[in-house]
Design a protein around this nucleic acid. Structure first.
Lengths: 231, 231
DNA sequence: TAGTGGTCTAGACCACTGC
DNA sequence: CAGTGGTCTAGACCACTAC
């Protein structure tokens, strides 16, 4: 019926069959508009959705590129859901916050050298009295040397990173896995050893430099990821 | 700089402060365009993003409504990731597929009466030789009475539902949780009892009628959910 | 039937990229 | 510099909802 879904479907087919070479831009928006006999805005709408669904990415001034086939299927939207209406109180406890020298493990995830200075923040988020989320974060100390001077009970480290202008953030990557909680995490979250929980790992980049690496352990009985859409 | 982010931010503030009553439409797109001194398309773009992020929903012909405050924060986009490049083979095994009468449990999730006929499909998806996903699905038998006549090794039940026109699908809701696998699931997935896995529960609606309910148990060592965005 | 959101057009100017 | 994507306008017609 309407035009852009047809254009989107055609482009998706071409992308999945590798009709457009990787590392090369797709035809430009005006070209695609001409090919399909629509206005630029209509062609653009199809590209918009393919971009959001991860099939292509765009670089202003350069072009629109295929994303490659690392990903199995389209994306979907989730939101972290919590029944805050019953327990609207939130509390943050700072377990540790210090400047330390990177161990080989930490150096690896931040692409630093072992011994480089790193800011470490270990916090526990609770909902009224129940602990819900454990946060362990490592930040390149050069990027946020004054981290410890802030009130870590109320401040968002990501907001601090975003507000400092010396090292502009360019990209966030995160993975959602599920793990059996080990002794340390289970005790903090006050659940039995081995309980299943979400583990979200997030890396923040400034171009190719890794600025921050954080792990969140999330109690699954208090949070779920929800989605609702129309087919 | 550009206009629609400012409009979006203003509307988001109003929504979070409940300036717009729930169950009542927001001002219409032409009204908002006049209020902010922009064209309708620009106001619409702000609403588009608020819709995608779950702050409002739209009903054609009726209006744009606040979504309510059940949700903690904005949404984010994830994609199910699997390293298919190493094991491109996929296999589906049908463990059970039959028509049965709803037990009270099944009747509850599909909003049927106990004893109503239900189609049940139990499948195992494998990646070359390793089992990866368990599927247990219940479909209202009135909606898809001929389900068993299809080749359940190759067919997508959701596609069948979507292609039959008698009961048009209107909504999908899904939740992502994490669980410790019980004996039955652990054996099928060939992992130790109690291993953490994703559990995705999905309900498909035709207006308010529940058409299909499915649980997927997903091995977390083979699938993760990934996201990549620019802040 | 009046008003809503859904789609589409044919322009326009801008910021940014690559050469 | 020419070409790209990002934004914006002022119209238009349509499908749908509510009354």
């Amino acid at each position: 019926m309407s035009k852009y879904p047809a254009i989107k479907a055609t482009l998706k087919e071409r992308l999945l069959s590798s009709a457009y070479p990787e590392n090369e831009p797709l035809p430009s928006e005006p070209q695609l508009a001409r090919e399909f006999g629509v206005s630029r805005m209509t062609a653009r709408r199809a590209l918009d959705e393919l971009d959001r669904e991860g099939y292509v990415y765009r670089v202003q001034g350069a072009g629109t590129y295929p994303s490659g086939k690392r990903f199995q299927q389209g994306t979907f939207q989730v939101r972290l859901f919590a029944d805050w209406s019953r327990h609207p109180d939130k509390r943050v406890e700072v377990l540790r916050a210090e400047r330390l020298l990177a161990t080989p493990d930490i150096a690896a995830v931040l692409h630093l050298q072992p011994g480089d200075p790193v800011m470490f923040v270990h916090r526990l988020r609770a909902d009224k009295t129940d602990p819900v989320v454990i946060e362990k974060r490592y930040v390149d100390a050069e990027v946020l040397p004054d981290l410890l001077e802030h009130d870590l009970v109320s401040v968002s480290v990501h907001d601090l990173l975003a507000s400092q202008t010396r090292v502009p953030l360019t990209r966030v990557e995160q993975h959602l896995e599920t793990v059996n909680l080990r002794q340390e995490e289970a005790q903090l979250l006050r659940v039995p050893l081995g309980t299943a929980a979400f583990l979200m790992r997030r890396t923040v980049y400034s171009s190719e430099r890794r600025v921050s690496y954080v792990n969140y352990w999330i109690r699954s009985d208090r949070f779920t990821f929800q989605e609702r859409f129309t087919p």
